[in-house]
């Protein structure tokens, strides 16, 4: 009675295996109102999207607007969903996929505490200089460095500090903006 499933040649197989995940940086312009961050974060957790990094701060005080920079790793299909779901939130004005839209800059700031004396201390200072890390606090046995740059640069610096007495790291998460004269 029941017909057999024919070979489909379908374009609609579940796409999880066929699509590779990509890292994308989204810039989200939102009303700076109570609960907005919870709305955005809640959306990601409720729908099973992963957040790699999230940065939020008010950017236009007069208009009470904040900019959220969120880095996600997802397949192209899921990325489209993330963007559509974000845009559906009432206080969200615009969502830009900076990675998809062309050249953009991304910067992150890290504060890095390193303990050390003797040779280690000298080596630490030499490397910090090479990475243009600022010393923002120092004692006879420790430094706190401020490093700004692409996340990969900060990753490298942290890796180098590891054997030299790395104590702890705090990172801001990413801030990103597109290149050129156009605004968001």
């Amino acid at each position: 009675m029941n017909a057999h499933l024919q070979p489909t040649g379908s374009a609609y197989f579940l796409t999880q295996e066929t699509q590779l995940s990509e890292r994308h940086t989204l810039s989200v312009l939102v009303d700076n109102e109570p609960g907005i961050l919870a709305r955005v974060v809640g959306l990601f957790s409720a729908r099973g999207f992963n957040i790699e990094s999230l940065t939020v701060s008010e950017t236009e005080h007069d208009k009470r607007l904040s900019r959220i920079t969120v880095v996600v790793i997802a397949t192209p299909k899921v990325l489209v969903q993330i963007k559509a779901q974000l845009e559906r939130l009432v206080p969200v004005h615009r969502v830009h996929d900076l990675t998809a839209e062309g050249a953009y800059l991304e910067r992150e700031l890290a504060l890095i505490k390193v303990n050390g004396t003797g040779d280690h201390r000298a080596e630490t200072l030499r490397l910090a200089d090479a990475f243009r890390a600022q010393i923002v606090d120092a004692t006879v046995e420790s430094f706190v460095f401020e490093v700004t740059g692409k996340p990969s640069k900060i990753d490298s610096f942290i890796a180098l500090m590891q054997p030299l007495g790395l104590v702890e790291v705090v990172r801001t998460g990413l801030a990103a903006i597109n290149r050129g004269p156009e605004g968001m």
Binding site: L5, Q6, T8, G9, S10, Y12, F13, L14
Partner: peptide
């Protein structure tokens, strides 16, 4: 089943 949904 999505992969066999209205395939053609």
């Amino acid at each position: 089943r999505i992969d066999a949904f209205s395939p053609n």
